[in-house]
Each structure stands twice: as structure tokens, then as C-alpha cells.
């Protein structure tokens, strides 16, 4: 077994050396880097949000998202908000519920249907994104989104994070921390922060894997999707609503 491994290692390093000889430096990056498989539809990223665990007034998830994605965190009408805390009061029972609201990563996203250039798109792994190289800033997707999940960048930006480019005149929204996923990580900034705060209200994972924690829990507890009546099959599930 170990001999086998060694041999594979040897083959790999000699291949690498050969490669280095042919094209100096070219292969270094490709080998050093983890993920070279394209996003695949065997994965569907999603979340289960347990509103019973979500604490009223806590906005650690929002802060973490802003930090991760380099958002300034303003809450004026023209400021970008990828995730927001919503406080709900049931009109009949008076019960107060608190939950984080963001792009629901629909399987049938209306924003994708209406986008004239195809800049709004759904990745094979279910993440709904805006290709900001194609976005012309018409804002039709914002009109179409039933969740008001999208923001338009109203001002020129400076000092964006290298991994999270953003810019004036284009529409953006929650990416499920795609930069983390593409590095092979398995959690989003908001879920991580929520766990850190001890609430564990946000469970992130692969909905297509029946053995993932999130899939198991969705099978066990009663959960709903927001505006399920629209039939958009969102990737975000909510518990306790």
C-alpha cells in the first residue's frame, strides 16, 4: 500500500519535473492548487435555517458576510445588503420570529429567466450568481426577485477584496461565499459566524447528498420554504416558520 503510494508520488514528481522542463513554472500553480473540477450538478448547495435558534437582535451573520465579501455594511436605501435580519410578528398569534434573509438560490430562479444578457445564471451546483462581466445594470432581475435579495451598486467602489470583485453599475447578491466553495471549503461566512455565536441556526451543505447533515435534518424536522406557493424550489429551507 505504502509502496504503491510512493510509486504514485514518484510518478507524479517526475511528471512534474518533466512539465517544468517543458514549460517553466506553468504547472506549479495547477499542482499546488486544490480545486480543478468544474462545479457539478451532483452537488446542490443549500441551507437549513432554524428560526428557533436565531436570536432577535443578533446580526453576527450580517457582519460576517460584510467582512467576508468586503461590503461596507451601510443600511441606507441605496446601500448593498447581501444578507439582512428580518423580524417577524405573527399577526394572529403575536409570536415574534427572527431570521436571516438572503438570496434563496432557487432551482427555478426568476432573475435568471428575465435577465436579457444571461448575466444572471445558475451554476451547476445550484448557486445563483450574477456574471458581472455581462451585467448591463438594467435591474430587471431586482424587479423579478420575490425575495428582494438583490442590490445594485450605486457608487464607484474602491479597495474591494481581491477574491470578491464588485463594481458600480452592476447587480449583486449573496453568492453562498462562492470563493470559499471554489477553494474546497464547506461553510459560508454567515453559517460560521452563527455557529461561533453559539446559535447554530444556519446549517449549510449539499442537498443532493442524502447523508449530508443538512439533508438529514431536512428529512427529520418540519421545514418550509419562503413563498413556497411560487414554486421556485429555493435552496434555502426554514425551520420554525
Amino acid at each position: 500500500m505504502s509502496g504503491d503510494l510512493n510509486r504514485r508520488e514518484f510518478l507524479r514528481s517526475s511528471a512534474m519535473l518533466a512539465g517544468l522542463a517543458v514549460a517553466p513554472g506553468v504547472l506549479l500553480y495547477d499542482l499546488a492548487h486544490g480545486k480543478d473540477q468544474p462545479a457539478s450538478s451532483s452537488v446542490r448547495w443549500g441551507m437549513l435555517i432554524d428560526t428557533n435558534q436565531c436570536e432577535e437582535g443578533c446580526d453576527d451573520c450580517v457582519k460576517a458576510c460584510n467582512k467576508e465579501n468586503g461590503l461596507p455594511g451601510g443600511t441606507g436605501p441605496a446601500d448593498e445588503q447581501w444578507i439582512r435580519k428580518v423580524e417577524l410578528k405573527n399577526i394572529k398569534t403575536g409570536k415574534i420570529t427572527s431570521l436571516p434573509m438572503m438570496c434563496q438560490h432557487c432551482a427555478e430562479p426568476p432573475c435568471v429567466d428575465v435577465c436579457p444578457t444571461g448575466a444572471s445564471f445558475k451554476r451547476a451546483d445550484g448557486i445563483v450568481l450574477v456574471d458581472r462581466h455581462l451585467c448591463i445594470g438594467c435591474r430587471y432581475c431586482m424587479m423579478a426577485c420575490p425575495y428582494k435579495a438583490r442590490s445594485f451598486v450605486h457608487e464607484p467602489l474602491h479597495d474591494q477584496k481581491p477574491e470578491v470583485p464588485r463594481g458600480k453599475g452592476t447587480v449583486e447578491s449573496c453568492t453562498l461565499c462562492v470563493q470559499r466553495i471554489d477553494r474546497g471549503e464547506n461553510t459560508t461566512a454567515c453559517a460560521e459566524a452563527c455557529s461561533k455565536a453559539g446559535h447554530k441556526a444556519i446549517l449549510f451543505g449539499n442537498l443532493n447528498d442524502p447523508d449530508s447533515e443538512v439533508s438529514k435534518r431536512i428529512r427529520e424536522v418540519a421545514s418550509t420554504r419562503i413563498r413556497a406557493d411560487l414554486g421556485l424550489d429555493p435552496g434555502l429551507h426554514y425551520e420554525g416558520l
Binding site: V114, P116, L134, C135, G137, C138
Partner: peptide, 25 residues
């Protein structure tokens, strides 16, 4: 009024057939 009027040509080169906006073009 577009956020990126400089890219208006993209509306011609990238066409999303499901978009009402694109039909209107």
C-alpha cells in the same frame, strides 16, 4: 439609464431567449 451603458453591446452579443427584455430588443 443602465448601470453600465458602455456594455449595451452585450445585449446584442449575449442573448437570453427566456427574457422578455431580450424579446423586446
Amino acid at each position: 439609464d443602465l448601470g453600465r451603458p458602455d456594455r449595451v453591446i452585450v445585449a446584442a452579443t449575449h442573448y437570453n431567449p427566456t427574457s422578455v427584455f431580450a424579446w423586446n430588443v
